[in-house]
């Protein structure tokens, strides 16, 4: 029984949770990478060109099109921004990106201090991509400012909730975070996961001791 040097359930080091590079911590997934993932989200565009009659455009992610002038069609975000940059189409703002809806979300978000409102998983990334190049074409000069300010306000309210949620962590318990968006998950990944791991490692020995002491009641000590 005494032969094992550190017991059967040897604990992990706290540092093993942070990867190899101790000098410079890095995010596991960068925000730019998340924006790259979000490029697969579909948006509706109105093209102003036609592509060989009624043929659709075959891509790895599926077939998109047909592209006819003034005929709305769904394409991935990367294609939409590319066509938009070349002035080949007009992007229709996604359904959730209008001022009335966002105002409603903002009011709800402020009213309940514990739950998050449902928004698309990549809402920040999609907004960021659409705002990057000529956003006034898509939203109109007035609408753009309004929508951007509302999104900023929503983001801040949600971030505040996340921070107050982080303060409530006291044990290695389950924590419910519904409707959290990709960027927000990623924002608290290192800190939140790290603190839960710390709590787990520190309490684990306690439980192991309990189990070991229970087992030793039934078994006689070999030494």
């Amino acid at each position: 029984m005494a032969s094992g040097s550190s017991g059967p359930e040897s604990s992990r080091s706290f540092f093993s949770y942070y990867g190899r590079n101790a000098q410079r911590l890095e995010m596991v997934v960068a925000p730019e990478e998340l924006e790259f993932f979000a490029q697969q989200e579909l948006v509706t565009v109105v093209p102003n060109f036609s592509l060989d009659g009624s043929a659709s455009l075959p891509c790895i992610g599926g077939n998109f099109g047909p592209f006819q002038p003034n005929m709305p069609t769904d394409v991935p975000l990367w294609m939409a921004t590319m066509l938009h940059n070349r002035k080949k189409c007009r992007i229709q703002p996604p359904g959730w990106m209008n001022a009335e809806h966002l105002q409603g979300v903002y009011d709800e978000e402020k009213r309940s201090s514990t739950s998050f409102q449902p928004l698309p998983f990549y809402y920040l990334e999609v907004a960021q991509s659409l705002f990057r190049e000529n956003p006034t074409d898509t939203f109109g000069a007035e609408g753009f400012g309004k929508i951007r300010d509302l999104l900023e306000a929503i983001r801040k309210v949600r971030y505040h909730k996340i921070e107050s949620g982080l303060r409530k962590v006291e044990n290695a318990d389950t924590i419910k975070l519904n409707n959290l968006a990709a960027a927000e998950c990623n924002l608290i990944r290192l800190l939140f996961k790290g603190s839960l791991d710390h709590f787990y490692e520190l309490t684990k020995n306690d439980k192991a001791w309990k189990e070991a002491s229970l087992a030793s009641v039934s078994l006689s000590e070999p030494f």
Binding site: F14, A30, P31, E32, I188, R189, L190, L191, H198
Partner: peptide, 30 residues
């Protein structure tokens, strides 16, 4: 250990903010 935890949180917020401010390296632009 706490320093690592704290740095993790700081790095995340700094990266996120600089992304929101659209501070991208010139080479990454289309």
């Amino acid at each position: 250990e706490e320093q690592q935890l704290f740095e993790g949180g700081r790095v995340s917020t700094v990266c996120f903010d600089s992304w929101l401010q659209m501070e991208r390296p010139a080479a990454a632009r289309l």
